[in-house]
């Protein structure tokens, strides 16, 4: 297990992404709601730069007592990383593909120490 310094917490403000190479794999490092994430930057679909995509809250449907759809809402507690090429969605922090839970985007542990961001390889 090795820690690789990739930048500082300031580098990851305002939704910025750090694209780094970890053992030959292109990895995207970013933060969302104060948590830090590192994912392989190749979508499982057609290889798009998924780690550079939008962070979107999950869309949920609210059913009534008769099982009719009352409304749809954003669930701000569940965030999806969305591939900018075709829209495949992966849930944070697991990296599970939302449409097919058997698929998981490879992830890396991120450690933050004294304002510095490290990816564990």
């Amino acid at each position: 297990m090795q820690e690789q310094l990739v930048g500082s917490v300031d580098d990851l403000k305002s939704g910025n992404r750090l694209i780094v190479s970890i053992n030959g794999t292109e990895v995207s490092v970013f933060q969302s709601s104060g948590r830090y994430f590192a994912f392989q930057n190749r979508c499982l679909h057609q290889g798009g730069p998924v780690g550079e995509g939008a962070l979107m809250p999950k869309v949920t449907a609210v059913l009534g007592r008769g099982r009719e759809v009352l409304e749809e809402r954003f669930d701000d507690n569940i965030v999806h990383l969305v591939c900018p090429w075709h829209g495949w969605e992966y849930e944070l922090p697991s990296g599970e593909c939302v449409a097919d839970r058997r698929l998981r985007l490879p992830s890396f542990e991120v450690r933050v120490k004294e304002g510095k961001v490290y990816v564990v390889s």
Partner: peptide, 23 residues
């Protein structure tokens, strides 16, 4: 290492950089 900030000129060559790797 590079930083993606969401800024900058739109460019197909950046958007499809991963396609080039595959090719």
């Amino acid at each position: 290492m590079r930083t993606v900030t969401g800024q900058g000129e739109p460019d197909t060559r950046k958007i499809l950089a991963n396609a080039r790797v595959q090719a």
